[in-house]
Design a protein around this nucleic acid. Structure first.
Lengths: 229, 229
DNA sequence: TTCATACTTCGACCGTAGCCGAAGCATTCA
DNA sequence: TGAATGCTTCGGCTACGGTCGAAGTATGAA
């Protein structure tokens, strides 16, 4: 028995304990790095790398490269549904456990050169909600209203456009596990807020520390749905 | 990575090509013998036996022993649902192909000592539809109306009750892949119809040959939903 | 630049599981 | 009773795939 151009291939992918643990860890919809998945599966990084390559080739996971990290997530809802079905047969138990350590880092930190963490996600969501930015798949475009907002905020868009770097890019947040704003605009927003005295860098870590008045101003500038009222 | 008390075990069962082929062959809901499944999977009987034992132990299939045959079917609808989910991921193709050879045998034949084949299934279904028999899981009980019908048909129920053998048993039909009536009642019905001259045994095979008048009488005695009018 | 981190590739080891031939039961049929 | 059929157990072979150490590449940090 050799040829199995069917269901068996994908089932065999799930059938390995290490890979199954990885997939189960991804079942909450969050993205995890290769190292995290290796720990989750209880194997070394080399072994995990091989497993993840197979999962990717089998279209069970999608990958997003982020600097020197690789974030893996389930490929689509169908994969989750298939796993659910198998879980029903196994009457298995879920395993959770996720995420980082430092509270300040989760709240706000610098990601390369832009704002990340809970505040970074908040800022990006606020810009999207007010239609200053629009997401089209991977691409992010600024609206004319967004350009006005950025100008009012004290950002020189012409200078940004002159540079060759892309204006807006989405970036996967490793603590929130949602996307936040990167690109030259993300960088400009962070430096502008630093100039305004809203925040400063923690010299001992990547954490970003808001001043009291800065935090109020930030919430006013980037309101969330709850905070808008 | 060793311990995988989860989803991976059942997935590994499906992950073997031979076993996957067997499961796919069972996806139409019909029951198949070990030999048929071996052929379906492209392995020898010994190998298939091992695979089927594992599938049974993993609660993916249920088994029913029928004389020297063993009929396997999917354990429940959950299994089928899980397989469906995996098929969705594999975009796989179904494979069908089933069943016996001789047309006369499929139409009607003797199964041990009772009527089997299309006519046997018809008879059983007719008795159930008119509430002469009632199915309770594995058990089959005769109703009082059924007792009256049997008496009118010329069957001595007292004699059957006197014998130690069970009155009614269901028997899985290998060509129709549905259950038909076995037990002492099934035996009595067949011999009674032979006495009435409705049918006779083919001396060269297990086939049962109806006479023209016998077939008309049989259809009248055991009408199907379509034939009732 | 130099160092540290995250991931990948290479090579070798090893265990497990699939496979079949042969023999062994169990059931049916003559 | 003996012969045929259907399935299982046993034993041994083979190979595929998971595993890790060590070295290699890429990215970010100092």
């Amino acid at each position: 028995m050799k040829e199995g151009p069917d269901i068996s291939h994908v089932a065999a992918l799930i059938g390995d304990p290490a890979r199954a643990n990885m997939l189960m860890a991804l079942m909450n919809g969050k993205a995890l790095t290769a190292s995290e998945l290796a720990a989750e599966a209880g194997v070394t990084a080399q072994t995990a790398s091989g497993h993840l390559a197979k999962l990717q080739q089998g279209d069970l996971v999608q990958v997003r490269k982020q600097g020197r990290h690789k974030y893996f997530a389930l490929a689509n809802a169908d994969v989750a549904a298939a796993l659910e079905g198998l879980m029903g047969l196994a009457a298995g138990q879920l395993r959770t456990r996720t995420g980082p350590k430092d509270a300040a880092m989760r709240e706000a930190r610098v990601c390369y050169n832009h704002l990340a963490g809970r505040r970074g996600v908040q800022m990006f969501a606020s810009l999207l909600a007010r239609d200053y930015l629009r997401e089209n798949g991977e691409a992010i475009a600024m609206t004319t209203a967004g350009a006005g907002f950025a100008g009012d905020f004290g950002i020189d868009l012409d200078a940004l456009h002159a540079a060759r770097a892309p204006l807006c890019r989405s970036c996967l947040d490793w603590s929130e596990r949602r996307t936040h704003l990167a690109g030259s605009l993300g960088r400009a927003l962070l430096t502008r807020m630093e100039d305004l005295g809203w925040l400063r860098h923690d010299p001992k870590s990547r954490a970003i520390l808001f001043s009291d008045t800065g935090l109020v101003a930030f919430d006013a500038a980037f309101p969330t749905e709850k905070g808008t009222r």
